[in-house]
């Protein structure tokens, strides 16, 4: 009988000790919701939905009209109480639109803006560091035709142990020449969590 108890104790100890080790594993990008906050899968789904909506919109087809207009994607505004990397979201939208081949892109939002680039070119020319006949001259950069931007807003309601969180991503595409809104769409997400009666 002592042997049985000894074995059981040994198994228990081994089980407890195995639980102490930190476990690291790769997981799928699209997981089920675990919090009411904005999660990576929410961002990915929103980007996919918005890009699909934009690419098939009749207004966009009309505005594009067989050419490839020059587009800039400006960082979306975060109107929620959470810290969300909106630049990352914006970059994902730009990357997927770029791959579609429907638009050409300029990037005014990131480091190395047009003004900085021109200043650097001028400095290099003045110092004689580059061949002046091959040097890029100012005033040749492509002008914008359209820009894409949007907002993320939230409504949060707490009722006892239940938290109800609603998010709305809104995006729109504006034609700079006419000032018209060529496309706009929304993606809504609603999550609910209930705290357990006994919470450790």
């Amino acid at each position: 009988m002592k042997k049985v108890y000894f074995s059981l104790c040994l198994i228990c100890c081994a089980t407890l000790l195995s639980g102490c080790a930190t476990q690291v594993k790769e997981v799928p990008l699209d997981r089920t919701a675990s919090t009411t906050r904005i999660e990576p899968q929410d961002i990915r789904r929103t980007v996919e939905k918005m890009v699909e909506s934009l690419l098939v919109a009749p207004g966009v087809k009309e505005a594009v009209g067989g050419r490839r207009p020059v587009l800039d994607v400006e960082p979306m505004k975060n109107r929620t109480m959470q810290h969300i990397d909106m630049i990352s979201l914006t970059e994902s939208v730009r990357m997927q639109l770029l791959r579609s081949g429907m638009f050409r892109f300029v990037d005014r939002s990131s480091i190395g803006t047009a003004a900085t680039d021109v200043e650097r070119i001028n400095q290099e020319n003045q110092l004689g560091l580059v061949d002046s006949s091959k040097a890029v001259k100012a005033g040749q950069q492509t002008a914008l035709d359209m820009y894409l931007t949007g907002t993320l807003s939230e409504i949060k309601n707490v009722d006892g142990r239940t938290t109800d969180q609603y998010y709305k991503f809104s995006m729109f595409l504006k034609d700079l020449k006419t000032g018209e809104l060529v496309w706009a769409d929304e993606q809504e997400i609603r999550k609910e969590s209930t705290k357990p009666v006994i919470n450790w």
């Binding site: 799928p28 990008l29 699209d30 899968q41 990915r44 789904r45 980007v47 996919e48 939905k49 997927q96 791959r99």
Partner: peptide, 10 residues
């Protein structure tokens, strides 16, 4: 085509 960009939607 671009498998990473297509997500599981609920």
């Amino acid at each position: 085509i671009d498998p990473q960009t297509k997500t599981y939607r609920n």
